[in-house]
Amino acid sequence: MKKTYLTVFGTLAVLTLLTVGVSYLHLNRAGAITVALLVAGIKVSLIAAFFMHLKFEKKVIHGIFYTALFFVLILLFLIFPDIGLSQ
């Protein structure tokens, strides 16, 4: 297991450097957002899957945790057209 943890740690470190590096490239808005969110998403998944052992947990835990994520997305995507696009 120790080896897995260190590999994950290495990946997280590289991804952090990557996302900071990309931010200095002055990509266009859409590109910058895509890269930053993609990298953040991968990092979050790695931490949850391996450090929090979500990958090895039972379905009940998956069910509750993913339901929360689902409702956050509902909140975000249903408010967004109303307030986020008002300009």
Partner: peptide
């Protein structure tokens, strides 16, 4: 800010 945000 947005007053509607609170309502949401």
């Amino acid at each position: 800010g947005s007053a509607l945000l609170w309502q949401h």
